[in-house]
């Protein structure tokens, strides 16, 4: 059964033009996507394609001048703003892009505690915090550290730990491997795969096509705010992506590791 879906999701920003005029600047148009439990769906696109905007729209985090149309459904229930706000942190969790999403003045331990309370967990103890970090290979000493002292890889794992505090059903990871070396990136993708194997739905937003193809079940390709293709990840790997739509195939073959093989086949 579909866990989460968006149907014809369109996002525009309303700007003032002149003295009285208003103009809507379109950023996402007619996006339709779904994810089932146990599945990792990658949303791929170049910078400015609207990937992060999609994540913010799905979580109801857009600024006040955003105009959103279309529908967002969770377990079949159509969500309005208030309902999304109630699900955030509890059933739908975000793994944000970077360390700047952690409060610079609070220790990791405090931020875990705050996140646990926000997720509705009562009686969250230091032991629980240590256990949450331990799932991602971090030891308890990290609790006393401030965000600026964490490495990129550690920060990402702290963000993953925060995301799991509320035992969410859907995890949306926004560029979870940005700035990580391949080993750490593989690790993060491994954790996300683990979420899916445990029955959650996972949406990974990424501009790294090969990593997305390697770890996801399906890949949705965004271009200029519109979905141009939703492909099975396996299709990319078969026969140099011969079964792909033209834009996806062009992207896939443009990657350094495929360009040469593409030329050789031709």
């Amino acid at each position: 059964m579909t866990l989460f879906s968006v149907d014809r999701l369109t996002v525009a920003f309303r700007r003032y033009q002149g003295l009285v005029g208003e103009v809507d600047i379109g950023c996402l148009s007619d996006l339709t996507l779904d994810v089932v439990r146990g599945e990792v769906v990658a949303v791929f696109g170049a910078s400015g394609a609207g990937k992060s905007l999609f994540a913010h729209a799905a979580l109801g985090l857009l600024p006040g001048n955003a105009v959103v149309t279309g529908s967002i459904r969770f377990e079949g229930e159509r969500l309005d703003a208030a309902r999304i706000a109630a699900l955030r942190g509890r059933r739908i969790a975000l793994v944000p892009q970077s360390i700047s999403h952690l409060d610079p003045l609070a220790t990791v331990g405090r931020q875990l505690g705050w996140a646990a309370r926000r997720a509705g967990r009562k009686g969250f103890t230091a032991g629980d915090a240590v256990a949450a970090l331990d799932r991602f290979g971090l030891d308890g000493a990290v609790l006393a550290r401030y965000p600026h002292t964490l490495s990129g890889g550690m920060a990402r794992r702290v963000l993953l730990a925060i995301a799991t505090l509320g035992e969410p059903d859907l995890v949306i990871a926004d560029e979870p491997t940005n700035g990580l070396d391949p080993d750490n990136a593989d690790r993060v993708f491994g954790y996300l795969r683990g979420f899916a194997d445990a029955g959650k739905g996972v949406i990974v937003i990424s501009h790294d096509l090969s990593a997305a193809v390697a770890s996801a079940d399906r890949v949705a390709v965004l271009r200029d705010g519109a979905l141009v293709a939703t492909e099975q990840a396996a299709t990319f790997r078969e026969d140099g992506g011969a079964g792909l739509t033209p834009y996806a195939r062009a992207l896939w073959r443009a990657l350094p590791q495929h360009a040469f093989s593409g030329v050789a086949h031709a």
Binding site: A86, G89, A93, P96, S98, L102, P104, A106, A119, G120
Partner: peptide
């Protein structure tokens, strides 16, 4: 408007929670 305030909202924090825990402290 910072990243960490947005992230707090994504965690389910109320406006007051974000304002006091993150805003006022910072």
């Amino acid at each position: 408007e910072s990243d960490f305030a947005t992230y707090a909202r994504a965690q389910g924090a109320s406006r007051l929670d974000v304002a006091l825990r993150h805003g006022a402290r910072n």
